[in-house]
Amino acid sequence: MRLGLSTPVVIQIPGVAAEWERTADAADLRAVAAAADRLGFDFLTCSEHVLVPAEDAEVRGGTYWDPVATLSYLAACTTRIRLATSVVVLGYHHPLELAKRYGTLDRLSGGRLILGVGVGSLRAEFDMLQAPWEDRGARADDALTALRACLSTNRPGYDGPFYRFSDVVVEPCAVQPRVPIWVGGRTGRSLRRAVTLADGWMPFGLRYTEITEMIARQEIPDGFDIVLPVGGLDPIGAPERTAAQLGKVAALGASAVTCGVTSRSVSHYCEQLEALRQVADVYEWPTERVSACPTDPR
């Protein structure tokens, strides 16, 4: 099971983000990314919200660093860690726009992009951006198919129900022959979309039992990533509990986990990452998926 990082600072949800993140700067973010890179973490993440209505920000938070700018900066600060969007909202962008922006990021990073995408759930944001809401699921399916057709070629062509293009040049394009695409969501449909059109699934806001039931109803192909979140880890103060938390998601069949750790400062955060790496390196992960797990990850 690969360990990824829910990058601090770039998203700040009330009640979750640490106090030090409010005043953190680019140097702090660079220190976190460099530590994760050095310690062998597999990926770090950055989310997307173009805007958040003030009333929603009380719950969702209002701080969301732009993923293209942020991950491009972190690409220059690191050498091996992968750069994952978690997630880009498909309905806000044309597939060719995503292909150009994230193809450039893949080129700049030497092929380290993971494109996490989602259908979107904040209607007020859709409305303010004048993005279609009612048929966003069907549009997302078409956008995913179009993305697969255009991410890794500079001469893309596609003819779908919502997106059509031909006789165009998109340069640069991604250097990976097949950029990993992960679909975020919290419904059975999001898992089916991921299995059918992408390479992985990133559920959120679900109980472990709900995740188990959804996976059991869906045939999971070989090599498909199930990427589960685990927050509130304290590997320095509670290493045994940390190992148990990681073990539960491993037992669910997670191929990767997006970790969030508690911290008092950026230096303490980096120390926590080192301790987390040590905990993970000595833990014996389950080799078979369990049928159910009663614990709630939230």
Rank of each mutant, 00 (worst) to 15 (best):
R207H: 14
V10H: 08
T70S: 13
P239I: 07
R112Q: 05
I236K: 10
G260T: 05
E210L: 02
A36G: 06
D127Y: 02
T262K: 11
H268M: 09
R107K: 05
Q278Y: 00
Q130D: 12
Y64R: 04
I11Q: 15
S109E: 03
G160L: 04
L276Y: 02
R164G: 12
Y158C: 14
G205N: 14
T209K: 09
C293Y: 00
E19R: 15
A18F: 01
R101I: 06
R22L: 13
D167K: 11
P203M: 04
R193H: 03
G232A: 07
A250Y: 01
S267N: 11
G205C: 13
V16Q: 14
L129T: 03
M1K: 04
V227T: 07
A198I: 01
Y102E: 08
V88S: 12
V279F: 00
V249E: 04
S86N: 14
G120M: 04
T295K: 09
V52A: 05
G231V: 07
V10E: 07
A27M: 11
I226D: 02
M202A: 13
L74P: 08
P8T: 05
G103I: 03
P156R: 06
L197F: 04
D296C: 10
A244T: 09
G4L: 05
V87Y: 01
K100H: 12
V87G: 07
L191I: 02
G200W: 00
D296H: 12
V9I: 15
L151G: 09
F41Q: 10
D141C: 07
C46H: 01
V87C: 11
L3I: 12
V290R: 07
H49L: 05
R193P: 08
D296Q: 08
A256W: 00
R241S: 13
S121V: 14
D167W: 01
F41W: 03
P95A: 08
W20Q: 13
A244C: 02
R80Q: 15
A198S: 03
V168L: 15
E125S: 11
W65G: 10
L113Y: 00
P8L: 03
L129G: 06
V10T: 14
P14M: 06
A124S: 15
A124Q: 13
Q245G: 09
F165V: 15
V179F: 00
R207D: 15
Y64P: 12
T258A: 12
A149C: 11
V195P: 00
V279Q: 02
E288I: 08
T145N: 10
Q176N: 07
T78H: 01
A256Q: 10
F43C: 05
G260W: 00
A216Q: 07
G103S: 03
G223C: 09
A33K: 00
R80N: 15
V88I: 15
E274P: 13
C77P: 04
G116I: 00
P177S: 07
V87S: 08
E58F: 02
D199I: 06
P203W: 00
P221R: 02
A17M: 06
W133D: 13
V290L: 09
V230D: 05
V179T: 08
V282T: 14
A140V: 01
K248A: 14
A54M: 04
R186Q: 14
T295A: 15
A250P: 11
T45P: 08
W20S: 13
Q278A: 15
E55M: 10
A256C: 10
A280I: 06
D25S: 11
D142T: 04
P235F: 02
L108M: 08
V50W: 04
C46R: 01
L129M: 14
Q12C: 10
L151E: 08
F126C: 09
F165K: 02
